[in-house]
C-alpha cells in the first residue's frame, strides 16, 4: 500500500471518529430533554410565547437530526454558536481560553522533553548504578501519584508554607508582579507547569532510558566507539537518534491529550483555561461550549495520532503500512 493510500485511509477513519464522538455527545446531552426547557425550569414565570420564540430562534422546534446537521454545517463554517452562560461566540472563547491552556501545557512538554533526555541518557549510560536506581524509582513513584494530589502538595509547600508562588489564577487581580505583565504571568505559571512537567518527565524518562539501554548494546554503537568517536558523540548523536523513536509517540500523545488532561490541572490551580471552562460548562449545561470543546479535544487527539503514524513511516522505513 502506498503512503498516499495509507494517509487517505487514516484520514477517513479520523473524520468518522470525530463525527462519531460529536454525535454521541450531542444525543447524550439531548437525552435529558430540551436545553431551553431545563434552563427555564429554574426561572419560572416566562410567558409561553417568549419560550416559543426562543425555541424558534435556536431551532429547537426541529427534530434532533436536523439540529445536529445544522450544528455540523455551522461548524464547517467555523461557527460554533453562542455560549448560553457567557453569551459570547464559542469560537472566540475557545481561542482566548485555549491560549491559557496551551501556554502552560506546551511549556511543560518542552521542559520535560529536555529533562527526560538528559536524565534518561544519564541513567542509561550508568545502568544499575545508584543514579539509575534513584531515577527509576522516582519515575515509577511518579506514575502512581495522583495529579491533583501533587498539585495540592505543591500549593501547600510553595504557596502556603514558603509563600513564594501564587496558588490560583493566571494573573494578579491588583498590581502585577514588579509592574511587568510578562513576569506576573510567568510567576503564576510556575506551579501548574511544575505539576505537569513532573508527570510528563516521569514517563518520558522511563521510555528513553529503557530504549537507550537496548540501543547501547547494539553492534553499530560498538562500531562507532571502535572507530574512535568521543563518548558524548556516540551517545547523543548515534544512540539517542535511534532510542528516541518510541518516545516520539508518547510526545504526540502528550500533545493530543493536552486538552483532555487540562480539567484536573486547571481545577487545582483555578486556571482560566479550556479545562476549567469545560468543567463549568458541564455543571451549568452550556451545550454549545460542551459540543465545541469536545470537537476540539477529539480533533487534537486524532491529529496527533495521524501525525505519529506518518512520522513513523518516514523515520523508520522498515515499518510496513499494514
Amino acid at each position: 500500500m502506498g503512503i498516499v493510500r495509507f494517509i487517505i485511509r487514516r484520514l477517513i477513519f479520523m473524520v468518522v471518529l470525530v463525527i462519531g464522538v460529536s454525535i454521541l455527545i450531542f444525543f447524550m446531552i439531548n437525552a435529558i430533554g430540551n436545553p431551553i426547557e431545563i434552563l427555564l425550569a429554574e426561572r419560572p414565570g416566562i410567558s409561553p410565547e417568549v419560550i416559543e420564540s426562543v425555541k424558534q430562534y435556536y431551532r429547537l422546534d426541529r427534530s434532533l437530526t436536523e439540529q445536529y446537521l445544522s450544528w455540523l454545517g455551522n461548524v464547517l463554517h467555523l461557527n460554533f454558536g453562542n455560549s448560553i452562560v457567557y453569551n459570547q461566540p464559542v469560537g472566540s472563547m475557545l481561542v482566548t481560553w485555549g491560549w491559557e491552556t496551551v501556554k502552560i501545557q506546551v511549556l511543560a512538554i518542552l521542559i520535560s522533553l529536555a529533562l527526560a533526555i538528559f536524565i534518561g541518557v544519564t541513567a542509561a549510560t550508568r545502568q544499575y548504578s545508584k543514579i539509575d536506581f534513584g531515577v527509576m524509582s522516582t519515575a515509577l513513584l511518579g506514575r502512581s501519584l495522583p495529579g491533583f494530589f501533587l498539585g495540592i502538595l505543591l500549593i501547600l509547600t510553595f504557596s502556603y508554607w514558603l509563600g513564594i508562588f501564587p496558588s490560583y489564577g493566571a494573573y494578579s487581580t491588583r498590581s502585577p508582579l514588579m509592574g511587568s505583565a510578562l513576569l506576573d504571568s510567568l510567576w503564576h505559571m510556575v506551579l501548574p507547569v511544575m505539576m505537569l512537567t513532573y508527570f510528563n518527565t516521569a514517563t518520558l524518562t522511563l521510555l528513553i532510558r529503557s530504549n537507550m539501554v537496548d540501543v547501547l548494546r547494539m553492534d553499530f554503537i560498538m562500531a562507532a566507539r571502535a572507530s574512535g568517536l568521543s563518548a558524548g558523540r556516540v551517545v547523543y548523536r548515534h544512540a539517542l537518534k535511534n532510542a528516541f523513536i518510541p518516545a516520539l509517540t508518547y510526545l504526540a500523545i502528550l500533545f493530543g491529550l493536552m486538552l483532555g488532561t487540562a480539567p484536573v490541572t486547571e481545577t487545582v490551580f483555578t486556571w482560566p483555561g479550556l479545562g476549567f471552562l469545560y468543567i463549568t460548562a458541564i455543571q451549568q449545561l452550556d451545550y454549545p461550549v460542551i459540543m465545541g470543546e469536545n470537537l476540539i479535544i477529539t480533533l487534537m487527539l486524532v491529529i496527533a495520532n495521524l501525525l505519529t503514524d506518518i512520522a513513523y513511516v518516514f523515520i523508520d522505513p522498515r515499518i510496513r503500512l499494514e
Binding site: 464522538v21 447524550m28 446531552i29 437525552a31 435529558i32 483532555g260 480539567p263 455543571q283 477529539t298 487527539l301
Partner: peptide, 19 residues
C-alpha cells in the same frame, strides 16, 4: 482507545444524575 474517555465520562455522569 482514541476517544477522550475522561471528558466523555464527565458528561455522562452529570447527565445521568439529571435524568
Amino acid at each position: 482507545l482514541v476517544v477522550p474517555i475522561f471528558i466523555v465520562i464527565l458528561v455522562m455522569v452529570r447527565i445521568f444524575g439529571i435524568v
